[in-house]
Amino acid sequence: MTITGKADGPVVMLAHGFGCDQNMWRLMVPALASRFRVVLFDYVGSGASDVSAWSPERYGSLDGYAQDVLDICRELDLRDVAFVGHSVSAMTGVLAAAQEPERFAKLVLLVPSPRYIDDGDYRGGFSAADIEELLESLDSNYLGWSAQMAPVIMGNADRPELGEELTNSFCRTDPDIAQVFARATFLSDSRRDLASVTVPTLVLDCTEDVIAPREVGAYVHAAIPGSRLVTLDATGHCPQLSAPEATTEAVIGFLAQR
């Protein structure tokens, strides 16, 4: 967990999605830190978290990840949190805010998807077979994911923000943990939870995103009462990396509103 920024500023919590860790936010943190107290963390099982605290039971459903968010809020005694969740973490935030709404002031759902698999009229963007193939590919990429693969030490001359860290260790997860996280993510269905959101919510989607297409963003916007929808002029599923300025601007703009 990392706490940075303005110590007495309003709290912004940044939650990473499936696959990576809090480094996902590094291009947005400097701009946010000048106004907010920024809380970054890795879910248990991801990034630099204590893997011994991980269990397949707790982290087999999104509730376990929502508990991580609430645990941090309780431990730091956070209130009026502006929660920014990327990808699956958007739904984690929805679940956490439904459980303890008094903790949260606002939600920013960055490229959210409440359900990845198509279901009747609902278009999540993936067929059940697609998701099966994804889960299999996690296995077939076993050597690529394997923690035993020798990491490369990268110098920090041209990217001082990284320091002397192990490259490729970023985004690397234990294959078994990744498999459980992937199942929790891509087999989940949080559509019913959207209506329970009572805090002001901003939905951010991208012009082109193969994982969370625009119609999914529109669905989330329609399902959350009083939410706002902004479509970022960005491609891919990680606008905080591909279009950090626009993403930051949208987030700050929304949080600044009374």
């Binding site: 499936f18 994804l134 590919s137």
Partner: peptide, 25 residues
Amino acid sequence: IGGKLYHETHFAPLLRMQGEVNGIA
């Protein structure tokens, strides 16, 4: 599909951070 997701969630973020990525299956 699996490759797309892996690309979006791992490959592209790594590439943006490191400027290069090697030997991804």
